[in-house]
Design a protein around this nucleic acid. Structure first.
Lengths: 201, 201
DNA sequence: CCTAATTCGTACGGTGGTGTACGAGTTGAC
DNA sequence: GTCAACTCGTACACCACCGTACGAATTAGG
């Protein structure tokens, strides 16, 4: 699940298992509460706090690994999306995949903000957003998406919807089953070319 | 600016001035960073930390007053909005006012979440959201807003847009001048009845 | 088995925030 | 001008968390 950097001595099986458990638990915990403590993460992973520090030098180091791992996974999922063909359909597919990523990672961004270097974060963000941007740009040039708003704002708006839905689900105000559909419908409504400005009576 | 509860002995002029300064500084600080320290708030208000504790028993007490104050102000601003007439226009006016409120208070909600009782928060939230809900409900029944999404989700979605725009402005990714227009356009696009699902070729 | 790797409890020092106590200095109000 | 109200620095106890040190028990792997 979690690859170790090459060049390090091979870990024992239980150690590798624990590292995986820690990273996965940390992802879950940080997604829910960016300020969660190391103790809580250790408990959630089913290991002692000391074991955690045995594998990760510091909170920052753990967050860095978690973010990198989440980023790799997100990158893999999003790059598997077919973004060709009709921009509407492409965006729909992209939104579905983005929903999964957003819901799984949630508050991770905020945790990363406090613990990681800004430029690293910037690159990570760019990497993920660029895909959506290019679909959006294509849809705009093909006349399928509205162009009367800055492209960056459209991206921000869609992200806001994703984030809002994820929060609502975490709070129990929305079921996880309905969320992706609602996000997609809403996002497309946001991006679609508006019907003629209804000049007549 | 900040009213004192009746029945307490009248404060001296400088005390009242300081209390106002504290509440206003706290509003600003908490809106930017919900986890800001009491020291930082005191400094921002131009008073010593001890003066702050002289007027507010605890962090919770301060947050409570700040929230109450912000709530009163928001209530006043939103209740002044004309929500009659065409639902589109009513919603536009409401969104403009909501933008101001959201931008000014920002992270206050998060600070309140950690410091105040859930039921108080619930009531506060309900109070503010109900107005939008009723406009939305009317617009839906009049066929001006789409009904194929839960009303609660539409509210959540619009709030997400407001919040996302506020964050973007705070980060400098969007100018405060453009934000309200973009939020309004986007929110209305979200709520509007979609153009016929284009069945024919 | 045997050994080295690994786990993990306890205990400690450091940091940063909250809230309290004391008290000296300052200033508004009458 | 006087006095009480107010300001505000310092100092302290307290707590939660981070990160380290030590060491004993456990366990994977040959």
């Amino acid at each position: 699940m979690v690859e170790l950097p090459a060049g390090t001595p091979p870990r024992r099986a239980d150690a590798r298992r624990n590292i995986s458990a820690i990273v996965e638990a940390a992802t879950r915990c940080l997604a829910e509460d960016p300020g969660v403590s190391m103790s809580a993460i250790a408990t959630a992973a089913g290991v002692g706090r000391m074991t955690l520090y045995g594998h990760f030098e510091s909170r920052s180091a753990l967050v860095a690994v978690v973010v990198e791992h989440a980023l790799d996974r997100a990158e893999a999922e999003l790059s598997a999306v077919d973004v060709t063909g009709d921009p509407y359909d492409a965006m729909t597919r992209l939104l579905d995949a983005s929903w999964t990523v957003t819901f799984r990672n949630g508050g991770l961004v905020q945790a990363a903000d406090q613990a990681l270097s800004p430029d690293l974060l910037e690159r990570a963000h760019t990497q993920l957003v660029d895909r959506a941007k290019s679909v959006l740009r294509r849809g705009r040039s093909e006349g399928r998406f509205r162009k009367d708003m800055p492209l960056d704002w459209q991206v921000t708006a869609v992200q806001s919807l994703l984030h809002g839905a994820a929060t609502a689900v975490h709070q129990g105000a929305l079921t996880a089953a309905r969320a992706p559909g609602l996000v997609t419908t809403s996002a497309l409504a946001l991006l679609a070319v508006p019907p003629a400005p209804s000049s007549g009576p």
